[in-house]
Computed example of a mutant assay.
Amino acid sequence: MTLSIAVLAFVTLQRLAELWLARRNTRRLMARGAVEVGAAHYPAIVGLHAAWLIGLWLLTWDKPVSLAWLIVFAALQLARVWVIASLGERWTTRIIILPGAPNVRRGPYQFIPHPNYLVVAAEIAVLPIAFDQWLFAVVFSIMNALVLRHRIRAEDAAMAIDP
């Protein structure tokens, strides 16, 4: 197995595991009375991330990987774990509001708003760059920014209603 395939397999399995975790957390939150906000844009997020991952497989499975950029990507994975651990059972891929529960203010959330989206935006750029796919990184970064613009507005509005 080449390093390229190993990296892509890792990211694919990681994302599938995260989807499982997100669904489990969503079910548990909804059972406690949580509500979803901004569901209309969720398919666009899923589609964007699926297209990003499929595109990477198609373009890079047989390409060399820059170890320097791979180290940057690995650091982003540590940040991703910190974000998920900080949110705990509240981490999900959807905007789920649990009435009466305070907004999370620990981990990276004590320093910056929306650290998860910052990590994801960096990942969307860095992994393609690790494979020398700069145009791919730019195109998906722009598309992600457009989706996140809407998502962050919806999330901020929901969190302001029920801080």
Rank of each mutant, 00 (worst) to 15 (best):
V7Q: 04
W69C: 00
R80H: 08
P99L: 01
G100Q: 02
R80P: 02
I129M: 06
A51D: 07
I84S: 05
A157T: 08
V46A: 13
D62M: 14
V104L: 10
A160D: 08
A9V: 13
Q133P: 05
M143T: 11
I129D: 01
R106H: 10
N116H: 08
A34N: 10
G55P: 04
A75E: 03
L19S: 08
A130W: 04
Q14M: 10
H150M: 10
I71V: 15
K63S: 15
W20R: 13
R24H: 12
L48M: 08
L13A: 11
G38R: 02
I54W: 13
V37A: 09
A125D: 03
Q133T: 00
I97M: 08
V138H: 03
M30V: 14
P102M: 07
W20A: 14
K63E: 10
P102H: 13
A40M: 10
V126G: 01
W134M: 13
I112L: 15
W57H: 03
L76S: 11
L146E: 09
A34G: 13
F73C: 02
W52C: 00
P108S: 02
R28Y: 03
A51C: 10
Q110W: 14
V139G: 01
A9R: 14
M30T: 12
L135T: 14
N25F: 05
I45Q: 13
W20C: 00
M30S: 08
R149H: 12
A50T: 15
Q14D: 13
I129R: 01
H49N: 13
P108D: 08
P64N: 06
T93N: 15
I129S: 03
G33N: 05
V120G: 07
V65M: 01
P113E: 13
S4P: 01
P99E: 02
M30R: 12
L148C: 06
L118Q: 07
P128L: 02
S86Q: 05
T92F: 05
L8I: 06
V147L: 07
P102E: 13
R24S: 11
W57N: 07
I124N: 02
A157E: 12
A160M: 04
A145Q: 12
L87N: 00
V72D: 01
V65G: 00
D132F: 14
V37F: 04
L76H: 06
L127I: 00
V81I: 15
G38P: 03
T2N: 14
A158Q: 05
S141G: 15
V65P: 00
L76C: 07
L13R: 12
A39D: 11
G88F: 06
S66K: 01
L29I: 04
Y117T: 05
H150L: 14
L53T: 07
R28A: 13
D162G: 09
A17V: 08
R149F: 14
T26H: 03
V65A: 05
M159H: 10
L58S: 10
I5Q: 14
R24D: 07
M1Y: 12
Q133V: 02
R94T: 04
S66N: 03
S4Y: 10
T60S: 15
N144M: 09
R28I: 01
M1A: 06
L98T: 07
